[in-house]
Write a protein that binds this DNA or RNA. Sequence first.
DNA 1: TCCCTTGGTCACATTGAGGGAACCACCATG
DNA 2: CATGGTGGTTCCCTCAATGTGACCAAGGGA
Lengths: 125, 125
Amino acid sequence: MVETAQCPDCKRINEVLSRVGDRWSVLVVISLSQYETLRFNELKRHLGISQRMLSLTLRELERDGLVQRKHYPTIPPKVEYRLTKMGQSFREPVKALGLWALDNLGTIDKAREKYDAAASDAVSA
Amino acid sequence: MVETAQCPDCKRINEVLSRVGDRWSVLVVISLSQYETLRFNELKRHLGISQRMLSLTLRELERDGLVQRKHYPTIPPKVEYRLTKMGQSFREPVKALGLWALDNLGTIDKAREKYDAAASDAVSA
DNA sequence: TCCCTTGGTCACATTGAGGGAACCACCATG
DNA sequence: CATGGTGGTTCCCTCAATGTGACCAAGGGA
């Protein structure tokens, strides 16, 4: 990619997108917004995510200030994760996206079928 | 990944996300919503996208019914792309995301600085 | 005594996304 | 005649994302 920043807004949007684009980040945010507080392995089991990816994802989310990490130095260790205020506010645009998805997935599926049918017609023609 | 579909909503949201996560799709949608109608090479130059990726992206968007393709069999060929109705409606959740980005990117940057500073402190300590 | 649990990290293996360049047909223009 | 522009497609290669499995420390329970 030579220049993504051709249009100024695109650059910003791209930055968020790169975070949203990682499916785990969003799923973690959603889970945390449902359960309020979750431990590492609770998240892991809930999402079916690999340990490594969860670790990476949580670290990034914490770094970005979306998730707050609370470490209890007990044995065995206990670590709790919860959303920060910003993390909670992030849910709204994600929710908007989710609602759009619900509204349009059916239409998209139909469009795909139609497209694929036309494509296979074109091949056989 | 064993099971992403642990929570039912996650699966749907994931589907949209995989489209949003692909930054080219979103950038194309944004460009088309700005310019109404664009030709292949106009998009290419505007976005700084490779020919291959633009071709793939547009095909997917057309397949999903977000973008409408109009082919003029002239020589040299001319192809125009524009958003469908659904494509236009898709802009709204994307816009919500963009606004959230604008509001929070500063905060995120600060959070990162703080986190990174704390991390390097921990190392040197 | 031995293994399990918790929350990670590290060292690979895979694999899919994306870029780059070449090629195509066809005409116009220099 | 050679070159360029249009809208693609196809092959190849690279790099980043992601998964897998091992390992760790320290204590509790069988």
